[in-house]
Design a protein around this nucleic acid. Structure first.
Lengths: 202, 202
DNA sequence: GCGTGTCGGTGACATTGTCACCAAGGCGAA
DNA sequence: TTCGCCTTGGTGACAATGTCACCGACACGC
């Protein structure tokens, strides 16, 4: 469609690569073609929490503040899987926003989605119990399946808590027949039961 | 400058007015001319937390997801002071974004600022101690002065905690000579000491 | 003066976070 | 194989925070 767009080469990135760190300068605007980016925050005390994930077709907004306000970003982005990215230089980004309504629409959708993600996260962390948060995280990470491939440590980062807390809560879930825990992964035995815990008001 | 802009009448709103609630339909795009809007989340269990504030010259993004994705928003907005607003209808918003680079620039700045706010909030709530969060909230609300006009209940909402917790922590601050508490307001006796608590790594 | 509602102090207890320690599994080197 | 070393996770003990209840102090209108 756009000839300028065709000139931008996709870039392949292996799983585990650190895409950006706090206070990095920004390379440009990133669109994910394949794979997922995990964006997380780490405090001085070492505790960590996952903010959100950027999936195929989505725009990574972490560079946005940098491009717009020349502010540095504060989060870290890691390639959770092998990735294919398009990197759009700042000038080209400005051009597209001005000239291509459909690019603008995608940008705005990405902004709205991140907003929703972050508000959900604040609500989760600030207002919900560990039981709820862990049940929701398990269902989210299972993506409709019945298996979650994550260590207790990774789950703790997912919900912004500590490994020991996750271990105990998983133990409780297992005792209630909701999950079965094995080294490195968790089987969802009773997803309906978990859904019920995840949304106590319903 | 823009004749269309001149056609939009400012609207005056008294302090305390609820501007929007969760699941409201969106009236349009809101720009704050004077005063501040406080945007907060409330959970089913009644707990509440302040997300951010929208100040003069800034754009309230809460309606953004609604205008862009037809999604409902989940937060509540209250006029913290008397307000003067401009309300831009959706069509006019689209026109300005397309035609006025300077309007677009303001919009993007607002987006970047909200992002930074929400990331700071997540970091605060998920990764920091009550002592740090309360010290930071007091300094933020004092806005460089030495007096904070808020009840313990309001401070609890500000940091996403409970009133009793705030009362006890303020008691500890008072015992250490950092603040003096009176009914309805808190005097910052030793702002430097509070700053030190607010940023323990420095 | 006397209600009535808001504000805040506090005790008792539940939940969550922190730290330390240990046991079990995985994995590579000799 | 055995050994060492790292990761994972189970658990106890304790600290920090959240929840609930209750009561007294204060503000305000009558």
């Amino acid at each position: 469609m756009s000839q300028a767009a065709a000139a931008i080469q996709p870039v392949a990135i292996p799983r585990g690569t650190v895409l950006f760190r706090p206070d990095d300068a920004c390379a440009g605007f990133v669109v994910v073609s394949a794979g997922t980016i995990k964006v997380s925050l780490t405090a001085e005390n070492g505790r960590e929490i996952v903010l959100y994930r950027v999936r195929p077709g989505e725009i990574c907004l972490q560079t946005f503040g940098c491009l717009v306000n020349h502010g540095a970003y504060s989060a870290e982005g890691i390639a959770e899987t092998d990735l294919v990215l398009e990197i759009i230089p700042a000038g080209e980004f400005q051009r597209r926003v001005t000239a291509e309504p459909e690019f603008r629409q995608r940008l705005f959708s990405a902004v709205a989605a991140r907003f929703a993600d972050l508000e959900r996260l604040v609500e989760d962390v600030a207002l919900s119990s560990i039981e709820e948060r862990l049940a929701r995280a398990l269902l989210r990470l299972a993506e409709g399946g019945a298996m979650v491939d994550a260590t207790h440590e990774a789950l703790a980062t997912e919900i912004g808590s500590a490994r020991a807390v996750v271990s105990r809560q998983l133990g409780a879930f297992a005792r209630d027949g909701l999950v079965a825990v094995e080294r490195g992964h968790i089987a969802l035995v009773d997803p309906e039961g978990l859904k019920h815990l995840a949304h106590p008001a319903e």
